[in-house]
Design a protein around this nucleic acid. Sequence first.
DNA 1: AAGTTTACTTTCCTAAAGGTAAGTGATAAT
DNA 2: ATTATCACTTACCTTTAGGAAAGTAAACTT
Lengths: 129, 129
Amino acid sequence: MISIQFGNEMLCKEARLALRDAIELLSGKWKICILQQLEFGDKRFKDLQEVVVGISPKVLTKELLELEQNLLITRTVNNTKPITVSYSLTPFALEAQAVYDALLTFGIQQRKRIKEAIAGNGSLQNVAV
Amino acid sequence: MISIQFGNEMLCKEARLALRDAIELLSGKWKICILQQLEFGDKRFKDLQEVVVGISPKVLTKELLELEQNLLITRTVNNTKPITVSYSLTPFALEAQAVYDALLTFGIQQRKRIKEAIAGNGSLQNVAV
DNA sequence: AAGTTTACTTTCCTAAAGGTAAGTGATAAT
DNA sequence: ATTATCACTTACCTTTAGGAAAGTAAACTT
């Protein structure tokens, strides 16, 4: 059904839509980072704020909501002294881990290449520092 | 060096930056689709416009330029009757293929899940149709 | 001379992403 | 009573992504 497996150029509609959905859900500055951090274990809101460097509470709230609505994480309210909320991955999120791995592998090589490429001209436009 | 391999929670700086670079480069609605289409072979500007459904010439130009600057594609001017320009993948782009594969696999499963989840409530918010 | 094809470019616009800063409300410690 | 902590929310603003439509320039066809 997925035309890439037949080697032709027409991505069948379902595959095209799947790709678009995945990009739409996982694109953006923060989602992959949040999922990655949750791979190490459940985290509270505040933990995530600290460990996902640079994210604001507003944006964190929004990202967590979207991930929850897409069934990749679950939100649990704990009855602790000052109330805390834990976020944890659902089993579904494991498939997103493959995306993370591929991005990391790619990113590491890409940084090497770009750094080499700019070694000659001195500018640093395409890699974060 | 990459802390994920040591199982702890501190992504070392280089890994974090690599991830950010990769997301920055490959995020967005079109890049992955363009790379995917070029996997099937070189394409001219006009071919890409047709095969990457919905993209405008302005945006296509911009995306191609960014991919070229990041060494993932090369641009070649052919001396044909009406001039044509071919775009082709560099060997580096092969690593991005892993990202595509992971996204597609994830996206297919994700669409299944979301469709099942909304089968009960009738809305269709999180999947493209 | 007029029209077609290719590969763009330019202008204008809207919507979404994301940042900053301050505020809220519940509970608990001092 | 005051202050602190946690998990947000709200208001405001800037930047970026992306879309629509038209235009341009070179070369070829008719």
